[in-house]
Amino acid sequence: METTESRSRIGNITAAVVLLLVGVTTLIQTAELDGNGDASDPGSGGYPMLIATVLIALSVLLTLQRGGGEALPSRFDGLRVIGAVALLLIYVSVMGSLGYITSTVLFLALALLLMGIRNIPLLVVVPVGFSTVLFLMFYNVFGVSLPRGILERLIS
């Protein structure tokens, strides 16, 4: 119990530090902004500075709080989340060059593996079926062109 409480306290303090940094960065970023010469206008920086000041005050309050939040994931569970985020980042990064279908099929296959799916036919059918249907739907029904690679040129 003690450990859970102290962990959540540490979580709150970590969040508070990050939020303080966000607040201070906002203050620095907006301090240089001028108004439009109208003395009655708080200016482009005035409102964000006000918000940042409130954020800093609340962050300080947060450091005094305890509790809240969910338990931290175990190392293995945490790795699965990190893996999913890494896959997402790679997916978005390569979509422009590989094209939508290839990148989505690869992403889905790997994400399903990460989710614990080991059924090989499903690892092929779900990614290929999902990405193809979605592509055709966006292209033909919604008129939205998704990033095009070799496969996209073949089927549309």
Binding site: V85, Y91, V92, M95, L112, F130, F142, V144, S145, L146
Partner: peptide, 28 residues
């Protein structure tokens, strides 16, 4: 099976707003 598809749909959906990979990255 649904959650990986939700991730892909989220990325593609946000891309479709303005055909922008920056939007997709913002979603992530």
């Amino acid at each position: 099976y649904l959650w990986p598809c939700v991730l892909a749909l989220s990325v593609v959906g946000s891309f479709a707003v303005q055909s922008s990979l920056v939007d997709a990255m913002i979603t992530v």
